[in-house]
């Protein structure tokens, strides 16, 4: 197993495109996390102009809500798409350069190839989750007063939930890459699906007589990003009387695991039948 990972790391570590995209991802993610708070506070400001009693500015990054809020932002599809594109490139490169053929000729099985890519997805998900965790910890410590510190770990479960979110999202990218084989085609289709096709489907499924949120919420991308729900802005919620989901959606966790199994299974069957 370590052997497969060693081989994959050799392919990745000196790959410029990989580092550029990873760098871009973290830059955008950092911007998102910083701007997230600003955007909400701007919105608060615009409301304050119309009401006599001004609402307070929100802080998203204090314990314990920081865990939910930061994983929510990192789980937005526009951010998730970056690591997904990286995974698609790493997989379709094998087809473009025909190194997948060469690897089989040299003594890898088709299953080995899939396992090696899965290991990369696993590592990538662990690393991103760890970084998010560290950032959340730093933000939490610097934004929480001493009175709130004892709540530090109460919402920590959002971190493993985020891990499941990104892992499954990357499995979808993996499925798409193995199926379509061409880099451009796979990235194009995946991006189109995640950003346009599924939101449209989601909307269409909700219209005709179906109960709202009934079928549409089980679409793959929707299931994944629903694991961690909207940010908890307790001060605002209390004032405005909104109740937002502040727990992890176990239903969507289950569906997500189901989708992972399905995508992995279909990829396995397709690869077994396909000639290289």
């Amino acid at each position: 197993m370590m052997k497969l990972l060693r081989i994959e790391l050799k392919k990745i570590l000196t790959y410029k495109i990989f580092w550029v995209l990873t760098g871009l991802y973290f830059v955008f993610l950092a911007l998102g996390i910083i701007l997230g708070e600003h955007i909400i506070n701007n919105w608060v400001d615009s409301i304050n102009r119309h009401i006599p009693l001004p609402l307070p500015h929100v802080t998203l990054y204090f314990f314990p809500d920081v865990w939910q809020n930061i994983t929510f932002f990192a789980g937005i599809r526009y951010f998730l798409i970056f690591p997904a594109i990286i995974i698609i490139i790493l997989i379709t490169n094998e087809f473009t350069y025909k190194t997948i053929r060469q690897n089989v000729i040299n003594g890898m099985s088709k299953v080995d190839i899939q396992l090696s890519k899965l290991q990369i997805i696993l590592c990538f998900s662990v690393i991103i989750t760890t970084i998010i965790g560290i950032v959340a910890l730093i933000l939490g410590i610097s934004n929480t007063d001493s009175a709130g510190m004892h709540l530090m770990l109460t919402k920590l479960l959002f971190l493993p939930a985020f891990f499941l979110e990104i892992f499954t999202f990357l499995i979808m990218a993996y499925f798409c890459a193995f199926l379509l084989k061409h880099t451009g085609l796979a990235i194009g289709f995946f991006t189109l699906y995640v950003i346009i096709i599924e939101p449209v489907l989601y909307f269409l499924l909700k219209i005709p007589g179906l109960q709202p949120n009934n079928v549409s919420q089980y679409l793959p991308v929707n299931s994944v990003i629903r694991i961690v729900e909207y940010p908890a802005i307790s001060s605002l919620q209390r004032i405005m009387g909104i109740t937002l989901q502040d727990h992890i959606s176990l239903l969507h966790c289950g569906i997500t695991v189901g989708y992972s199994a399905l995508f992995l299974g279909v990829t396995f069957v397709v690869m077994r039948r396909r000639d290289l």
């Binding site: 052997k3 060693r6 081989i7 050799k10 392919k11 000196t14 790959y15 410029k16 490169n93 350069y97 025909k98 190194t99 053929r101 060469q102 690897n103 040299n106 003594g107 890898m108």
Partner: peptide
Amino acid sequence: NFFPYLSAQKNLEIVAEIKD
């Protein structure tokens, strides 16, 4: 069939890894 962005040495290291 090799990775264009890797050196000859690195490409052969991958082959060596696969073949133990």
